[in-house]
C-alpha cells in the first residue's frame, strides 16, 4: 500500500479547451472582404506610401493607422523572395511533407506574404522565381487567404536579386 502511494506520478494529462472569438479588425476586414471577391487588396502607408500586403492595422514603422483610402488592388503574381523546404510535421498544418514554405513579394507590394509553393519539383525551387497564385474554385471563396491554395511557378525569367533583396 505505502509503496503504491509513494509511486511518483510523472504525467497528468489535462486537456484544456478554450474558445475564442477573434475580431479581424478594420484593416484586416477590408483585406478579407477583398479576398472573398478574389481581390488582393494592399494598403498604402499614409507616411511613406509603401504598400503593405497583407495589410495590418497600422504601419508598424510609423505607428499610424492604415486608412481605407490607401487601399490598392494588386495582381496575383509575384516573386519568390526566400523559402524553406519543410520536412517536419506540425499538428496545425494539414499539408503533406515535404512542402515548400515561401515568402512571396506580389508585384506592386512592398512587403512579403507567407504562403506555400505547389506544382514545382523540390530541386527546381529557387530565390527570384516568378510565381502566380493558384485559386480555389470561385464558389468556395471565403474571407480567408486560404482562397489561394498555393503559388505555382510562372514561365518567366527570374527577377534579379537586386529587385527583391531588401525584403529578406
Amino acid at each position: 500500500m505505502s509503496e503504491e502511494v509513494s509511486e511518483p506520478i510523472e504525467v497528468l494529462r489535462l486537456p484544456v479547451e478554450l474558445e475564442y472569438q477573434y475580431t479581424a479588425g478594420k484593416s484586416a476586414s477590408r483585406f478579407l472582404r477583398g479576398l472573398q471577391q478574389g481581390k488582393l487588396l494592399g494598403q498604402r502607408c499614409p507616411v511613406d506610401g509603401r504598400v503593405y500586403f497583407p495589410t495590418r492595422g497600422c504601419c508598424p514603422q510609423h505607428g499610424v493607422p492604415m486608412a481605407e483610402e490607401g487601399s490598392i488592388e494588386l495582381p496575383d503574381v509575384g516573386t519568390l523572395v526566400t523559402y524553406s523546404i519543410v520536412r517536419v510535421p506540425s499538428a496545425n498544418i494539414p499539408l503533406e511533407l515535404p512542402y515548400v514554405t515561401i515568402q512571396v513579394l506580389l508585384d506592386g507590394a512592398d512587403t512579403v506574404m507567407m504562403h506555400v509553393l505547389g506544382e514545382c519539383e523540390l530541386e527546381d525551387v529557387h530565390m527570384g522565381m516568378r510565381l502566380e497564385a493558384k485559386w480555389k474554385p470561385e464558389e468556395e471563396w471565403e474571407t480567408s487567404v486560404g482562397n489561394i491554395l498555393y503559388f505555382v511557378p510562372l514561365d518567366e525569367p527570374d527577377a534579379p536579386y537586386e529587385s527583391y533583396k531588401e525584403h529578406i
Binding site: A28, R56, V64
Partner: peptide, 9 residues
C-alpha cells in the same frame, strides 16, 4: 470593430 492593436493605436 477593432482588434487589440487597433484599440491601442
Amino acid at each position: 470593430d477593432c482588434n487589440e492593436v487597433e484599440i491601442l493605436i
